[in-house]
Amino acid sequence: MQRILLLLAIALTLLSSSCISTKKLSYLQEDKASMDSIVEVHRLNKPYRLQVGDLLSIRVKALDQDIVEMFNPTGEGIANATGEEQMYYDGFAVDQHGNIRVPTLGEINVMGYTVEEIREKIEDQLLSEYFKQEANIFVTVKLAGIRYTTIGEIGAGSNVLYKERVTIMEAIANAGGISDVGDREDVKILRQYPHGEEVHHIDLTNLDAVKSEYYYIQPNDLIIVDPLPQKSLGAGTTGIESFRTIGTVISLISTSILLFTRF
């Protein structure tokens, strides 16, 4: 009888510690004390500044488009290339020295500049060296998508989203979401800076995550989702799964005890 009670106590302990609560699985949880949550978001609206490895899309337009064609990519990088592949060949990559090479204009330093500052820089150079104001030069400069990588308890791989700004929730959803055994309370972001790399943390189960300066991802971010302890235990993510697993273990233990007591 004592052995049975001991086994039941062990089973209840394992069951309570092994299954994953909905609190750990739910995103952006609000305060239950209020009916609706009004989130005052104080984001750092600092524009992104270019780094080594970034890819830019640059186009020059004018009233007479023929006179500016020499400044635009030819689109002959590879036959039948589309989307990201085409951008790889037609885009302007920032090299190790922080420069891009633009047709006719040559090398232009863009390291640490915003896309708006680069647009003004190219426009000023075109007007001072090649055209007059009457040509109505129109330059567009954009990041060729926001590229990021995900590893861990999330759809692993490299991803590109063609938007001006991307939240970490959009990035995770695009990667396939976090698994049931992924730690949503401590999602890590490895981010590149001119001085090196830094790791930042964000709790995606808390509604206050939208106030974080890391809620919006940046190009070349690495999003890391570590597993919860329940994964190493292998006891299941729900109560039923855990109960079945623990029941099997207890059954084996009970059988072993009975066999040994008979001898």
Rank of each mutant, 00 (worst) to 15 (best):
Q96P: 04
P229M: 09
L56P: 01
L44P: 04
Q192R: 13
G155Y: 00
G83S: 03
M70E: 09
S179Q: 06
L28V: 11
A33P: 11
N45P: 07
T167C: 01
H195F: 14
G176C: 03
V210N: 13
T248D: 05
S34R: 15
H200E: 07
D90E: 02
T248I: 13
K163A: 02
R165S: 09
K142I: 02
V102P: 00
I20T: 05
T114A: 07
A144W: 10
R147M: 09
E117F: 04
G196V: 06
L6V: 09
Q51R: 10
I250R: 07
D64G: 04
T150D: 08
E107T: 06
L50F: 15
I58H: 04
T237Q: 05
G91L: 06
S128K: 13
V52K: 12
I118G: 07
T205W: 04
L63K: 13
Y214W: 15
G236C: 05
E153Q: 05
N99R: 01
E40M: 15
G177P: 02
A209Q: 09
A79D: 12
V39W: 08
G196C: 06
I257H: 10
V187Y: 01
G75Q: 11
S128L: 12
A33N: 15
V68A: 13
L56Q: 03
E164S: 02
K32N: 15
L7P: 04
V102H: 00
Q133I: 11
R147P: 08
D180C: 00
R147F: 14
E198H: 12
E164L: 07
I240H: 09
V225I: 12
R147N: 05
M70S: 08
D90T: 03
M1T: 11
E123M: 03
L126M: 00
E129G: 01
I224C: 02
Q192I: 12
Y88R: 09
V210S: 08
T205D: 04
V225T: 04
E213V: 10
I224L: 05
H195V: 12
Q192M: 14
A62C: 11
V141M: 04
T104P: 00
G247S: 02
T167E: 02
Q86S: 10
T104N: 02
G77D: 03
I189L: 13
L204T: 07
S179D: 08
A156V: 12
E213G: 13
T261C: 07
T245Q: 00
L127I: 03
S242Y: 01
N72F: 11
L222T: 00
S26F: 10
G75M: 15
L56E: 03
A135Y: 11
K46P: 03
K23E: 14
C19N: 15
Q51I: 13
F263H: 10
G112S: 10
L204H: 06
D90I: 05
Q86N: 08
N220M: 12
L222Y: 01
Q86G: 01
N174D: 06
G236E: 01
I137K: 04
A62E: 08
Q218G: 06
G77Q: 10
C19K: 14
I168T: 03
I67K: 09
